[in-house]
């Protein structure tokens, strides 16, 4: 564990807490893409298949349970909670994400570290996470102004993988045989997808104005 990875995990945890806070405090999920939440639930379920077979550390296990539990709870809330579900922007959140799921799974069948059930699903989860934010970014552009908590949620979600990139650089420089090309390339693509969001987020912060993404 290094400071970059810890910062990344904490930033990821903060993004989840901010989203839970938004939904719990405002009893509303307006501006949140259910599709992105469902994609993230798939990402965690596919990535943490080794949850019970490979014990790495208490921290690792606890964080996996937190990410799986929170993503499933948010999907449940947005679908079935009688108050929250009314504020879901159903007609704006129309990204056909099964194309993404199919493409990522096909890529994982071709490109993986080892051809085993667990490894293919692990590579699938890495590719899927890289594009999982797309429905959310599309929804932000369509829904015009973005409330603060939603903007902060997306910001922290994008920042966490940027910390992971620093972690991979650090591990590459300090550990002799460290190569994680699948994670690194996907992580770069994932962070690049947030580039324009980060730009408009910085502008809104600098001008102390509402976050506005151009339609």
């Amino acid at each position: 564990m290094n400071i970059f990875r810890l910062a990344g995990d904490m930033t990821h945890l903060i993004s989840v807490l901010v989203l839970l806070l938004k939904i719990y405090a405002t009893k509303s999920c307006s501006g949140i893409s259910l599709k992105t939440q469902e994609l993230y639930a798939m990402v965690f379920l596919a990535r943490y298949l080794d949850l019970f077979s490979d014990f790495i550390s208490l921290y690792n296990t606890v964080m996996k349970l937190v990410f799986i539990g929170s993503s499933l709870a948010i999907v449940w809330c947005m679908r079935y909670h009688r108050v929250v579900r009314r504020s879901y922007d159903r007609e704006l959140d129309t990204f056909r994400y099964w194309i993404l799921v199919g493409a990522c799974f096909t890529l994982a069948l071709v490109l993986h570290e080892k051809f085993s059930f667990q490894e293919v699903f692990w590579a699938f989860s890495i590719y899927l996470e890289a594009v999982a934010i797309l429905p959310q970014l599309v929804l932000l552009q369509r829904s015009g102004n973005v409330d603060n908590l939603t903007g902060q949620y997306v910001f922290f979600l994008g920042a966490y993988r940027a910390f992971y990139i620093l972690n991979w650089i650090y591990r590459y420089l300090t550990e002799p045989r460290f190569t994680r090309w699948i994670s690194c390339v996907s992580g770069l693509v994932q962070t690049a997808l947030y580039a324009d969001f980060f730009y408009y987020y910085f502008i809104s912060w600098k001008n102390n104005a509402k976050l506005q993404l151009p339609a």
């Binding site: 080794d50 790495i56 964080m63 667990q118």
Partner: peptide
Amino acid sequence: KDHESDHDEL
């Protein structure tokens, strides 16, 4: 452990 893919990251 070496045959296992060491996915020690989240």
